[in-house]
Design a protein around this nucleic acid. Structure first.
Lengths: 205, 205, 205, 205
DNA sequence: CATGAATGAGCATTCATTCAT
DNA sequence: TATGAATGAATGCTCATTCAT
């Protein structure tokens, strides 16, 4: 019994060891530079070993993405539980999303990676896992909006649609960060973001 | 002089010939399958010749992206000149952006490709070119909004910020198309988009 | 004693279990897709266990080949026991060989696999096993021919040589099945085969 | 012009150089040990270079097979042109086929390789090339038989069928060489072969 | 007896880029 | 100008076998 447990533990540790290596690579040189053999070298394991623990390169990516989403999720969940008004929650969540895109840039990149890969790339199984983790994120926002409506603070007929739009706006704007010093030369990207959040939140009232 | 001009013309023609090949490839099998030697074969030129006219694979991508943006620009410009109210213009432009993402998927992909590549990837020179073409797009929207404000139809203190937010929302939502059958199972992606556009346009009034 | 026997029985059962798995694999996706770890998974055993019961991948192949030959043998033996004339027996055996190559394609492939592998590949021990199973097949034919000669129906000085030639022809022709739609475009491969069988049988008279 | 020709010549030489390497490998360790990177190393070229000259590993195999068949063809053609009787020609051709399988074992192996590979493996284009080279071989035999019939030396209604059977027998028997010291322990494989050839040739009369 | 983790060489193929001609 | 031959590192992935437990 004890043996079985220890084995299971060790196995999980190996998986983590591999994920650590992948993450290190991700953080040191970006999504595109992750290759199985690099992971193997980084983890000081044989290539075959990687494949023993993860069926695919895609599986490793998914694991990393899950990490990222989990991190984001817990941050956002915490905010949603704070004792502040609905408006404040949405604002803080938006803020947190922005911070995440900056402070956890690599995780954000990998999330984006999945968003912009051709759908065919991932087996539907994987795609579902990925999408569902996104759904949990969405639900938090949606709940706040719906609750706000329910309690009479907000006025919005379709909380789900609103939440998706809200999230879409945040996500789209963050992608425009690239334009900060060119297109938006008169604007601070962050102020732009804040402006958009405020607009959306106000529109609920 | 005549000679010089002729030479310049020929040079431009060669560049177009190469671009034609790259575009053909882009449209026949997508961004990922474009390789220099395939372009060379398609253009009936030597690989070396490609490198004579374009320093990089990236340069060719930029040229294609410019094409895409130009196409999008002309569509949107036309709409902006139509004799319809400001509200209608914005709605139609949004609609056109959506159509473009579907009907000119390959161009949209390549635009996205640049948006999601690590910045370092491109020399600042290239980046500027790309960004400026995006700027022109933005200006159209901005002009409509500003004009609407000026003529008293709209009420918005910062047309530039609004336009960026508007565009960001459109762009972000289009990226969420992937979630259509999973996260948004109860919603049509297109209706979601329409809803968001309407919300934004109405908020101007 | 009882213990020993039980042990031996269990051992045999395990070997069968492994062979079952290998056969399943063989029949579901052909010779080339058999790998030890796939067998292990299919048999719900550890890889190491496979190696405990079979020293080699080759050993498993040999076991499968034996199965195939045994199947073929029993079919042919039955025919040889039928109450029909010698000529009919030979014809029916030839027919059965052809059917076997089609209906038990996977077994036939594995037999061929051994026939076309470099000799060095197998330890002489294995080779002997394989060859002897082939010998039994040959003997059936040889007995029919010899008996036919003995009873005055056939006229052939060297029944062994004849039998080998006969079998060689059958085997060689079956391998030419590939050419059916190219080289033999005017001929049906099966008719070709029948023609050859008839020729050989008639030559005995 | 001279330049062009020289280039073409050099290109052909490179192709030969690659084929030389592949052949060396084939002859030193058999079909199964040919890999692109080994060829590259043997030819003292980069891997990419191999692919510049041959689209595929399969293409190289086909080139080798063609060599082998060409060699066999020229030998057999020569015999067919000798001023000897039809019977002698067939006997000598059979003999030459046997010698070829021994003296040019590697070429024979590669021919066999194609005969026993799953059909799907090769694009129909390649398969046709391979099959047609086999057809030429067959035609030589067929012509001799048909001519023998025409001139009244032979009696055979269907020269084509007979030739295929004849060739099939030769080929099948050669494959049984493996059994020389086991199944055929009382027989010399070569004598067995001779016996079969004689039987077939005699049957024509 | 049985396990299954670990290995690492091996595979076919692609690709952006260079450079002598 | 234009060519196209040459490169070799890089890719994701497989597999037979070993061995400590």
């Amino acid at each position: 019994m004890g043996v079985k447990e220890r084995k299971a533990l060790e196995k999980q540790q190996r998986r983590n060891q591999i994920l650590d290596a992948a993450r290190t690579l991700l953080f040191s040189s970006g999504v595109d530079s992750i290759s199985i053999s690099k992971i193997a070298k980084q983890a000081e394991l044989g290539v075959g070993t990687i494949y023993f623990y993860y069926k695919n390169k895609a599986q490793i990516f998914v694991a990393l993405q899950k990490e990222g989403v989990a991190l984001l999720y817990s941050t956002i969940l915490q905010i949603s539980k704070k004792m502040i008004d609905h408006e404040g929650k949405l604002t803080r969540i938006a803020k947190a999303y922005y911070s995440f895109s900056e402070e956890q840039k690599n995780y954000f990149d990998i999330i984006n990676y999945f968003l912009s890969s051709p759908i065919i790339f991932f087996e539907s199984n994987l795609k579902n896992q990925i999408d569902m983790s996104g759904h949990k994120l969405l639900l938090i926002i949606q709940d706040i909006v719906a609750d706000g409506v329910h309690q009479g603070f907000f006025n919005e007929e379709d909380p789900e649609k609103f939440s998706i739009m809200f999230w879409g706006t945040l996500h789209g704007l963050i992608q425009f960060k690239k334009f900060e010093r060119t297109i938006f030369e008169n604007e601070s990207h962050e102020l732009l973001y804040d402006y958009s959040v405020k607009k959306h939140v106000h529109s609920l009232k």
